[in-house]
């Protein structure tokens, strides 16, 4: 199986680097043990898990999703290993920030975040056919 497809980081995204030992049942990407979560007997990646949690909270909330930043909802949540991923999803979706990704394995999974890549890197994406899903992102 290939490398874990989950990206670490908030200001900049980077590859996890660990071996993928499971497959996420939602996005079908390979995922390492550290980034695997179990939800109702399904194996999913921490990013799909956090997205799901964040979207469920937003749907439940009486106001717009950006009315309650995660830290204001529950100050204890930071202790949860998924909290950083949940915050990251919330932050990317509700701010105008587009994170950088300087790696090789850009995936369209992150299209919603408008990830920034190299300014002069369009030619590289055509050369790199080994990229997991689609090569460099053209922001």
């Amino acid at each position: 199986m290939s490398k874990c497809a989950v990206k670490r980081g908030i200001l900049t995204l980077r590859d996890c680097g660990e071996e993928g030992i499971n497959t996420c049942s939602i996005c079908a990407r390979p995922v390492c043990a550290e980034h695997t979560r179990i939800r109702s007997s399904d194996t999913i990646c921490v990013e799909c898990f956090a997205k799901g949690e964040e979207e469920a909270k937003s749907a439940k909330g009486p106001k717009a999703p950006n009315a309650h930043p995660p830290v204001a909802r529950n100050e204890e949540e930071w202790n949860d290993p998924d909290w950083a991923y949940s915050y990251r999803h919330y932050y990317y979706m509700n701010s105008s920030y587009n994170p950088f990704y300087p790696g090789h394995y850009y995936s369209d999974y992150y299209d919603d975040y408008d990830v920034r890549s190299f300014t002069q890197g369009e030619d590289a994406q055509l050369d790199d056919e080994s990229a997991v899903a689609g090569g460099f992102h053209d922001s």
């Binding site: 908030i10 200001l11 900049t12 930043p69 830290v71 204001a72 915050y87 932050y91 701010s95 920030y97 994170p99 950088f100 300087p102 090789h104 920034r116 890549s117 190299f118 300014t119 002069q120 890197g121 590289a124």
Partner: peptide
């Protein structure tokens, strides 16, 4: 202090730069 206030400040610094293509990338 809201966490977002600091995250936005850090983000704004990253908004002021662009990635440089490096050899091998």
């Amino acid at each position: 202090l809201p966490l977002n206030a600091v995250m936005e400040t850090l983000s704004s610094a990253y908004g002021r730069v662009n990635l440089v293509k490096q050899e091998g990338n």
